[in-house]
Design a protein around this nucleic acid. Structure first.
Lengths: 213, 213
DNA sequence: TCAAAAGTGTTCTGATTACACCCATGT
DNA sequence: ACATGGGTGTAATCAGAACACTTTTGA
């Protein structure tokens, strides 16, 4: 039962902004400028406004940091241990956001946003708060959701080759998979269909392009 | 990024206490005594203490309402729409708790706790806040988690017949399943094993008792 | 002896795994 | 011509679904 007694807990949203990079799954972090976490890296976040839904807070962060709020956004978990923030009691509602075009963000990485950088989720820098753990939970959940190939959609451009799809699948699941078995899986699933176009311009043999339905 | 600016948001934990009852899955609710939700039913909840973790808050609720905090407890979701509480801005971190012995709770349903009652999740009364929706999400998640039979453990006594196990499975999944197929599934799974005991005293033919490993 | 729940096996289908070679292109 | 990634099929195994009759007990 809830009642109206106010408390001193700060409610924040933190976003785990993920994209596929050269080496694997990457997350966008910002460097903290102040004590007690000076120099350490943190997830982009914001305190929830009094008239703002949690998802609106998350979108506000995305607009500021990525320049676009139309990403796949999903609530991950609510972290609330009393010792998670050395500055005082806070709880963080974590959302993950999936991004297909890192480049778009990278245009943001100028001027006032020079404190932002992509990191491979397997090689994270020194992190503030419990954010390392939060990223761990996010990566784990993503792998768990992978039984629906659909979850890959926001991480790819609208058209992609089978190899690109398979690469994302392997990165998220952490497992290698055989090409021939993978195409069977994809064809069964029916969420991914062939287009008539070919990926040209790449080195070597052109590949058929697929898209999500 | 989080900072220390205080806000006016109340952080509460609400618990969805579930058990298997005569008609199906049941949830324990309390009747609200005050405006603006007078007479409506709500999930047992509490405001999070400043030095208390979210899970500790949930356990505090369980001790008070059920007399036991050693239930299966799991965070469900964080609900935070600005209009979810007519009295002011609040967010609710929902936890579900699974209970095998409704009777234990029923001893609590006396004196100051006469405002507590079990309801079938399919026939809920008029509810306060967004609690009807929260219960819906909980029931859905439970069905989703059912691919691991393990999730049924906290809803059953330590020893149980195959039919009892199957009944819970059917209630949570919302589907009928064939007896012979069900035992194959259970045997494959290997989390449930046969004991040497029989369920005697019931009407008709005695049944073998199983237990979780 | 009857009512009610317990107990039991086979067949079919669809998904998953293991596995190896030729093809099309740019350099 | 060669290096590189694109593209393809078969056989074995396993889980899930459909399906009906006999057994044991208490009343």
């Amino acid at each position: 039962m809830e009642n109206g007694i106010p408390n001193k807990i700060v409610v924040a949203v933190d976003t785990i902004i993920l994209a596929i990079g050269k080496g694997g799954l990457e997350v966008l972090l910002t460097q903290f400028k102040y004590e007690p976490y000076e120099g350490r890296w943190a997830l982009p976040g914001a305190v929830v406004g009094v008239d703002e839904s949690l998802e609106e807070t998350a979108k506000r962060i995305l607009v500021k940091r990525v320049g676009d709020s139309r990403l796949h956004l999903e609530q991950l978990y609510c972290f609330g241990n009393p010792d998670r923030d050395a500055r005082g009691r806070s709880i963080s509602v974590a959302y993950f956001a999936l991004l297909s075009e890192k480049e778009k963000v990278n245009n943001h990485l100028t001027g006032q946003y020079l404190d932002m950088k992509w990191f491979d989720t397997k090689h994270l820098p020194d992190m503030a708060f419990d954010h390392r753990k939060i990223i761990g939970v996010a990566v784990e959940k993503l792998a768990y959701k992978l039984d629906e190939i659909e979850i890959i959609r926001p991480l790819l451009p609208t058209k992609f080759t089978l190899s690109e799809l398979q690469r994302v699948y392997e990165i998220l699941s952490g497992k290698k998979i055989d090409k021939r078995n993978f195409i069977k899986k994809v064809k069964n699933d029916e969420t991914v269909v062939l287009t008539t176009e070919m990926k040209t311009g790449g080195a070597y043999r052109p590949a058929k392009l697929f898209k999500f339905r």
